[in-house]
């Protein structure tokens, strides 16, 4: 078996665990977040999301509209 570097190993693990998070059921998520106020957590996330959206709306010229997609394809192959 090909010897993998730690960063390659971590990439495999994180990709898999991330998929686990994507596939997690809503009740599991709610239960996991319940140690802290769920409302506060959701408000915190919404604030970040809305701020990012607002920034995109006010600064469209600052965003790379036509980035080189080949870089992403390289990422995907990695």
């Amino acid at each position: 078996m090909k010897r993998l570097r730690p960063e390659q190993k971590l990439d495999h693990v994180l990709a898999n665990l991330a998929q686990d998070i994507v596939d997690a059921a809503d009740p599991e998520l709610g239960q996991a977040a319940s140690g802290r106020s769920l409302r506060a957590t959701l408000t915190e996330i919404r604030t970040i999301v809305q701020a990012a959206i607002a920034r995109c709306e006010t600064l469209p010229h600052a965003l790379p509209k036509h980035d080189d997609p080949s870089k992403d394809q390289i990422d995907d192959r990695e």
């Binding site: 991330a18 998070i21 994507v22 997690a24 998520l29 709610g30 996991a32 957590t41 996330i45 999301v49």
Partner: peptide
Amino acid sequence: EGDLLRLKAL
């Protein structure tokens, strides 16, 4: 709400 929690966890 579930997806927002997923986003934070990710």
